[in-house]
Amino acid sequence: MISLIAALAVDRVIGMENAMPWNLPADLAWFKRNTLNKPVIMGRHTWESIGRPLPGRKNIILSSQPGTDDRVTWVKSVDEAIAACGDVPEIMVIGGGRVYEQFLPKAQKLYLTHIDAEVEGDTHFPDYEPDDWESVFSEFHDADAQNSHSYCFEILERR
């Protein structure tokens, strides 16, 4: 099963200049909980913004210009990325925008964090048809001392 995991502000903004323009430790914990011990696929820009392999996960970098870091697996196509994951129950696609666009048609599940923030962004989550998805989990949280904005975790499964 292919799943996408993303944090989205208003207007589906997911990033600005290779960074997330908010401070939500709870979302980072949600991300870790849902990706640990699963292969993660990301684009080169996302890889560069993280700066290191995510521990406890097979890191697969999709790029037309593969790098030389041998701590991760470099691939040039969506099919190659899927094959590099091996026989696993769930593959997690973690961004960025172009990689989400490439995998959305193949995805069966979306793990979304909806952030109540209007922020400037240069990267967006692809538009998706809500009628194609069923919400199977939703959990709202107010902003607090650690988390700069209110947010809602949601899991959607393709109908």
Rank of each mutant, 00 (worst) to 15 (best):
D70F: 08
S49N: 02
P53M: 05
L54V: 01
P130W: 13
R159E: 14
E154G: 14
Q146S: 08
E48D: 06
G56F: 06
T68E: 11
D142E: 10
Y151P: 02
R158G: 09
G56D: 06
H45K: 02
E118C: 12
L104V: 01
T46V: 00
E154Y: 15
A26P: 04
L28P: 00
D87T: 09
E90S: 10
M20G: 00
L24N: 10
K38L: 12
H114Y: 12
T68V: 08
D70H: 12
V13R: 01
V78G: 14
E139G: 06
E120D: 15
V75E: 07
A145H: 10
S150G: 06
E90L: 02
V88M: 11
W74S: 09
R12K: 15
Y151H: 12
K109M: 06
S64A: 12
K109T: 12
R159G: 13
V40P: 00
E157V: 05
L36M: 06
D69N: 07
G67L: 12
Q65V: 12
A81L: 12
L112R: 02
P53D: 07
V75Q: 09
D132E: 04
A145E: 08
M92S: 13
I41G: 02
K58Y: 05
N23K: 00
W47I: 15
I2R: 00
D11L: 03
D132S: 12
S150Q: 02
I41S: 02
M42Y: 14
E157S: 10
L54A: 01
A83G: 07
L156K: 15
P39E: 14
M42W: 01
K58L: 08
E120H: 12
H45F: 03
Q102L: 15
Q108C: 07
S148F: 01
P89E: 07
T73N: 05
E90D: 09
G97C: 02
D79E: 05
D131W: 09
P130A: 12
P130E: 13
K106I: 10
P25N: 10
N23A: 13
M92V: 14
P66K: 08
P21H: 01
N59F: 05
H114N: 15
D131M: 03
D142R: 11
T46L: 00
Q102M: 11
H124N: 10
V136M: 10
I14Q: 00
E80P: 05
L156Y: 15
